[in-house]
Design a protein around this nucleic acid. Sequence first.
DNA 1: TATGAATGAGACTTCATTCAT
DNA 2: AATGAATGAAGTCTCATTCAT
Lengths: 200, 200, 200, 200
Amino acid sequence: MNKPVTTQPIEIIKDKRQAILDTALTLFVSQGFHGTSTASIAKQAGVATGTLFHHFPSKEALMECLFLTIKQEFADALLLNIHKGNDLKHNAMQLWQSAIDWSLANPVKQLFFQQYSMSPMITPKVRDQAMNSILGFISELIKQGQMMGLIAHYPVELMLENCHGQYLAATRFFIDNPQLGTNKDYRNASFELFWKAMQS
Amino acid sequence: MNKPVTTQPIEIIKDKRQAILDTALTLFVSQGFHGTSTASIAKQAGVATGTLFHHFPSKEALMECLFLTIKQEFADALLLNIHKGNDLKHNAMQLWQSAIDWSLANPVKQLFFQQYSMSPMITPKVRDQAMNSILGFISELIKQGQMMGLIAHYPVELMLENCHGQYLAATRFFIDNPQLGTNKDYRNASFELFWKAMQS
Amino acid sequence: MNKPVTTQPIEIIKDKRQAILDTALTLFVSQGFHGTSTASIAKQAGVATGTLFHHFPSKEALMECLFLTIKQEFADALLLNIHKGNDLKHNAMQLWQSAIDWSLANPVKQLFFQQYSMSPMITPKVRDQAMNSILGFISELIKQGQMMGLIAHYPVELMLENCHGQYLAATRFFIDNPQLGTNKDYRNASFELFWKAMQS
Amino acid sequence: MNKPVTTQPIEIIKDKRQAILDTALTLFVSQGFHGTSTASIAKQAGVATGTLFHHFPSKEALMECLFLTIKQEFADALLLNIHKGNDLKHNAMQLWQSAIDWSLANPVKQLFFQQYSMSPMITPKVRDQAMNSILGFISELIKQGQMMGLIAHYPVELMLENCHGQYLAATRFFIDNPQLGTNKDYRNASFELFWKAMQS
DNA sequence: TATGAATGAGACTTCATTCAT
DNA sequence: AATGAATGAAGTCTCATTCAT
């Protein structure tokens, strides 16, 4: 029996490891981490139960890999749109809108963050690592702004946490109300709320 | 055998149902919902496994009861400190400080909210019910402020979500840094960030 | 607080012991012995869980009491209609019709027999005792008929078992098809099948 | 390590699924459905508890599978011995004797039928399906006999139920008195009782 | 007689993980 | 790399029964 030289649809060629990650994302978001069995991930991904454990040593490891992969995707999307100009507010706005855009383009991944960023499923070490690498340059922006007198002089760590909280709130709102995601008024309002809090 | 005139320590008299709720709170926060077995709750609460199910039909029902009970406690604490004066900003600050105070006085309960307010362990129906009954008067305050020209004219639902997000961020910060909870500068800063976002 | 002198409806006055027996009958038939908890019997009978165990030392004892009580009821109904005439076939028919009548008048009790007469819930001792006391005079009738040359000369124990089997089949049929219970043709047919097997 | 050329005893080669079915049959008959724990089935079958649930989604499903499997076995045994000759009574006798033979050769399976054919453990749907597929050709035989004037003209469904009842009675008798199973007189008597009821 | 909270053994079932193929 | 039958520990929940009131 010869192996036929097929030009199969992309989805079928896509390697099993990626299929497992994709399926895990969907199921973790819709049913929770403990509500999702490795068997169900394997089944829906179209692989055998054993296969999952060839690619990931454990369920926890799969979760960690998923978390870091998506965080990296998010960071890449943000970095792509950073054009350091002289206008700090403009830069901040671009960053904010990029982040909102990404969350609207990847609602399932954003829901994944909402659910798991703070959950005990993610070890603090992994969480902090992911957070800092992303919030690192936010922190820099805030310090710069303060030195330039454009940003209020509150403790930086408090402001950082506040940024994160407002961002989560905004994406939560837009994901719950998808039709407003393209509405200029709402989009601007979400940034203005944020910026007013920050500015001096 | 005479019935002894007991002056038992309060903790022992406290009924078993409450002991179960208290223990569940602690364990859910420290080990997660799925990481906590009903057997361990019962054991640590000093009751038999069957007793838990005598008072709560299921583990989920126990969680729901716990969530609503604590939300009510929080709401009661806030309502106690509302003194409607003419100065809107002052009123808002009192509310904000009451909320922060409560979270510092009840750090475990606050952690419980951080973990479960957005989790799939809580039915959307229950979550919304709890949210609306509490955030209801916040919504009213915002609308009043807008009519008086003191609060910015952004969509109310977006502002509401933003309030919640900033509150979660502030309590997260103070619980992670307990020694700053009594620091006037940090406390004021947390309110100022919030208020600046809101004001017109 | 005075106890009012009420003339309560019979159902409420009916003593709790009987209420427990009645409820147990219904539930055992509809949900099976193991599918029925003592708690559910007590609840539906309108008594406390403990009360059941004041009247019956155990669930098994309740079952046994129920079984014997109903068997006795059935036997009483049959004996009432026995008028020993000279016509053996006529006597047999009266007996047969009485039995069918009883089963139609007490369908739940008949279903109870269908389910439990042969089940391991009833100890063989109790079962045999109940059986023999009733089938005793059937046995006598057969022997008489054989001596008179009216009944076929097969082994009595085999015929006895056959009688029982045909009776169960007939009641099963009439209970499954209640509208045919009053149909003369079906009623006569059920007896004729039985009698033809028996006669010599 | 070479794969040994095993000539293992048949019992050990027999797959685990079958071992579970066999053990379940024995235990359900001797201890009842609810008196038999899935753990005890697995243990006595020599497999892990999980294995049972790998092959059968639930205890109920195991019961259903067992019931249908045995019913099929019984039907196969009957069909094997049907030789449609011209003598209807002879055909009926062959069928009757085959059925009794099967019950004597498989007493445990027959006891299983006695206990569970009418029990609430078996869904009415499953019960009817099994019954009809087997009793289907009995029904045809009766109709044929009636057209040929050999069988009494009573309602077919009533006669069918009667057949079943007499069959259960006969097997009950022979299983309770195993030494009479080979006794010609008793065997013939059991058929004659049946046939006399049927004939016109 | 009646109550119903409390008990704890034991039931069914799930599931992450392994391993021979 | 891939498979999927097998494992057995651990989880949630049920329930007959007791006992202080």
